[in-house]
Simulated scan of single mutants.
Amino acid sequence: MTAPIEENQLLALIVDDEPFFRTVLRLFLEQDGYRVAEAENSIEAINIFEQLHPDIVLLDISMPDMDGVECCNKLHSSAQGQHTPILMLTSVEDERSINHAFAVGATDYVTKFLPLSILRQRLKRLIEQSQLQQKLLAANQQLQLLVNLDELTQVANRRRFEEYLSLEWQRQIRSQQPLSLILCDVDFFKSYNDTYGHLAGDGTLVKIARAIKDALKRTADLVARYGGEEFAVVLPDTDALGAIHIAKTICCAVRTLAIPHRNSLLCSHITLSAGSTTVVPQPNSDFQQIIATADRALYQAKAAGRDRFIHNSSLDSSFANPSYSLFGSSAPKRCGFC
């Protein structure tokens, strides 16, 4: 059903219930340098499409069981089909069927009596347009990625953090599921820069960002550089116990890096302070509230001696809840709780 494969050949899928017409098209396309796959009905076409991901589909509009319009709709609905040109083939120019085909994702149509020289140009134009569209899409995705990334650490930037937190806040208002936030600050980082220089400081921020990112196991979790030596972690659908576990894991991961800091007032290497909070967002509330609560918890962690995390589990400041730290508030200022 398919010609010998060469890496640079384009793959065309012919879908038609007439064997003679498929043969004519196949010979023509192979002569023009295409690889060719054939299907005699829509079900077979969908299976081949999912397996081979052709560069273009030539699809008969009139077939038994599932017609070409319905097949086109199913192909176009798939992720791959959204970028694959679908050329509808028709024996009779039925305006209603053609309009329906365009409505469900067809790229163009031709009659089966069209001269092959014109068909050749149509195919060339459709594939060139598809390739250009995919290049533009990739370029836009790369641009969007750059807009949302912190240039130094390659995690999300402040803009992306606030955008994502706002979206998750609204989503959790609808679902009434918990949303957690962790704010982290590198302990005595100004002293670190003064001691080792800003280049070393930049390298340390990169390592810390990577350690925080590696501590997150779900694609929905987002780590962002909040500003300077501060990082933020958004944890959708995460309760207080989950946030506490992640905060502890992050602090341990940074300590495990064992980055020397001889002028730290705590110990001989880099540590983190973190504040976390968990809330079920309510209607007519603002996501800035959760940031303020996590920021207060971070301040409490610093005031309690740093190298620790504190968790506040309610946006209501009057809510009596326990705080969690790396070691008790009466413990000596030392490193190590993992």
Results as ranks from 00 to 15, higher is better:
156 A>F: 01
215 A>H: 02
311 H>C: 11
305 G>L: 03
37 A>K: 14
222 L>K: 04
1 M>C: 14
50 E>P: 08
249 T>R: 11
307 D>H: 07
223 V>S: 01
308 R>E: 09
337 F>R: 07
192 Y>G: 02
225 R>A: 01
291 I>S: 08
206 V>H: 08
43 I>G: 14
175 S>M: 13
166 S>Q: 10
16 D>I: 09
112 K>A: 03
167 L>I: 09
279 V>S: 08
203 G>V: 03
328 G>T: 15
47 N>I: 15
153 T>C: 05
95 E>D: 12
321 N>M: 15
184 C>Y: 06
335 C>H: 03
47 N>Q: 15
42 S>Q: 04
40 E>Y: 11
225 R>C: 01
86 I>H: 04
283 P>G: 04
338 C>Y: 00
284 N>E: 12
52 L>N: 13
189 F>V: 03
283 P>R: 04
256 T>K: 13
197 G>Y: 09
271 T>P: 04
307 D>K: 06
41 N>Q: 06
273 S>C: 06
190 K>G: 05
102 F>H: 03
167 L>Q: 13
85 P>W: 00
74 K>N: 08
109 Y>P: 02
47 N>V: 15
111 T>Y: 05
112 K>V: 01
314 S>I: 09
5 I>C: 09
165 L>T: 00
168 E>I: 01
108 D>M: 04
65 D>G: 09
153 T>A: 03
77 S>Y: 10
281 P>A: 03
16 D>Y: 08
218 R>G: 00
10 L>E: 09
22 R>K: 11
213 K>V: 06
126 L>C: 04
67 D>W: 06
114 L>K: 00
181 L>F: 01
167 L>K: 11
51 Q>Y: 09
91 S>N: 14
86 I>D: 02
41 N>S: 06
62 S>N: 15
65 D>I: 12
218 R>W: 00
70 E>A: 13
164 Y>I: 07
267 C>V: 02
114 L>F: 01
319 F>L: 11
218 R>N: 00
126 L>S: 04
324 Y>M: 12
101 A>G: 05
110 V>E: 00
273 S>Y: 07
95 E>A: 14
212 I>M: 02
225 R>S: 00
209 A>M: 03
104 V>Y: 01
61 I>S: 07
292 A>C: 10
234 V>I: 10
337 F>H: 08
292 A>H: 11
65 D>N: 12
56 I>L: 06
294 A>P: 03
44 E>G: 14
315 L>S: 08
108 D>Q: 06
293 T>A: 09
12 A>M: 07
61 I>T: 08
63 M>E: 05
228 G>Y: 01
231 F>I: 02
216 L>Y: 00
247 A>R: 06
153 T>H: 02
227 G>Q: 02
85 P>V: 01
23 T>A: 15
309 F>D: 07
5 I>V: 12
70 E>Q: 13
263 N>Y: 04
8 N>I: 10
228 G>D: 03
141 Q>W: 08
151 E>Y: 12
320 A>K: 15
284 N>K: 10
44 E>D: 14
5 I>F: 11
196 Y>P: 03
213 K>Q: 11
314 S>D: 09
229 E>C: 02
91 S>F: 12
247 A>S: 10
63 M>L: 07
63 M>N: 05
139 A>R: 11
65 D>P: 10
20 F>V: 15
100 H>Q: 14
47 N>W: 14
1 M>L: 15
217 K>I: 05
160 R>D: 01
46 I>E: 08
73 N>D: 13
77 S>H: 12
21 F>Y: 14
287 F>P: 10
171 R>Y: 02
26 R>G: 11
